[in-house]
Computed example of a mutant assay.
Amino acid sequence: MSQDGVGVDLDTSLGYLLKQAHNVLRAGMDAALRPLGMTVPQYACLELLAQRPGLSNSDLARGAFVSRQSMNVLLQSLERDRLVSRPDKPSAGRALPVQLTPLGRERLQAASAAARTVETQMGRGLTITQQQQLRDLLASCVRSLAES
C-alpha cells in the first residue's frame, strides 16, 4: 500500500516496475530503429516473419502487440516499401501469405543488430546467470497470468 493506505506501493509493485522497464525499453528501441526508418511494430513484424514464416495477419498482430487493423496498415506500408510481398490472390482459402523480400531481410539484419544493442545495454548490470533467471521469471509471470 502507499503511504496513505490507498492503492499500491509503486516502489515495490511488480506491474509498475514492468511498465517502467517496458517504457524505457520501448524508448531505447524507438531511438535505435528511427535512423533505419523503422518503427518497433514494423521491426517486430519483420522479425516474426523471418522466424515464423506463414503467420496469419492475426498471428502477426498478436506477436507485434497491435490490433489486426493496425497490422493491415503496417503490412501495407511494408509492402509499399518493398520489405514484404503478398500474392494478389490466395493460393488456398482467404489468407494472403506474407513473405520477406530480399530488401526486407537486409533491413531486418540492420534492425536486429540495433535491437540487440538495446537489449545488451538493458542487461549490462546483470550476469549471464541473472539474465537467464530474469527470462525464466518473466516467462513464469506470463504463464501465471495467461492461465487465469
Rank of each mutant, 00 (worst) to 15 (best):
residue 3 Q to S: 15
residue 4 D to A: 12
residue 6 V to W: 09
residue 8 V to Q: 09
residue 10 L to C: 11
residue 10 L to T: 12
residue 13 S to N: 14
residue 14 L to S: 07
residue 14 L to V: 11
residue 14 L to M: 10
residue 17 L to G: 07
residue 19 K to W: 06
residue 20 Q to V: 13
residue 20 Q to D: 09
residue 23 N to D: 13
residue 23 N to G: 11
residue 24 V to P: 03
residue 24 V to E: 15
residue 29 M to N: 10
residue 31 A to G: 05
residue 31 A to M: 02
residue 33 L to K: 04
residue 33 L to Y: 07
residue 33 L to A: 03
residue 34 R to I: 02
residue 35 P to K: 07
residue 41 P to L: 05
residue 42 Q to E: 15
residue 43 Y to V: 01
residue 45 C to D: 04
residue 45 C to S: 14
residue 46 L to G: 07
residue 52 R to H: 13
residue 52 R to G: 10
residue 52 R to S: 15
residue 56 S to A: 09
residue 59 D to G: 15
residue 63 G to A: 08
residue 63 G to M: 02
residue 63 G to K: 10
residue 64 A to Q: 07
residue 65 F to A: 15
residue 65 F to I: 13
residue 65 F to T: 14
residue 66 V to I: 15
residue 68 R to A: 12
residue 70 S to C: 08
residue 70 S to P: 03
residue 71 M to V: 04
residue 72 N to C: 05
residue 72 N to A: 12
residue 74 L to R: 11
residue 75 L to W: 01
residue 75 L to K: 03
residue 76 Q to D: 12
residue 77 S to W: 04
residue 84 V to T: 15
residue 86 R to P: 01
residue 88 D to M: 14
residue 88 D to W: 09
residue 90 P to C: 06
residue 91 S to P: 00
residue 93 G to H: 02
residue 94 R to H: 13
residue 94 R to L: 07
residue 95 A to D: 11
residue 95 A to K: 14
residue 95 A to V: 06
residue 99 Q to F: 00
residue 99 Q to K: 14
residue 99 Q to G: 07
residue 103 L to H: 08
residue 107 R to Q: 15
residue 109 Q to P: 04
residue 110 A to T: 07
residue 110 A to V: 00
residue 111 A to T: 12
residue 113 A to F: 03
residue 115 A to G: 08
residue 116 R to T: 10
residue 117 T to W: 00
residue 117 T to N: 13
residue 118 V to H: 12
residue 118 V to T: 12
residue 120 T to S: 12
residue 121 Q to W: 09
residue 123 G to S: 10
residue 125 G to E: 10
residue 125 G to M: 06
residue 126 L to D: 05
residue 127 T to V: 01
residue 130 Q to Y: 04
residue 133 Q to L: 11
residue 136 D to H: 09
residue 137 L to F: 06
residue 139 A to C: 02
residue 140 S to V: 05
residue 141 C to K: 05
residue 144 S to Y: 10
residue 145 L to F: 12
residue 146 A to M: 10
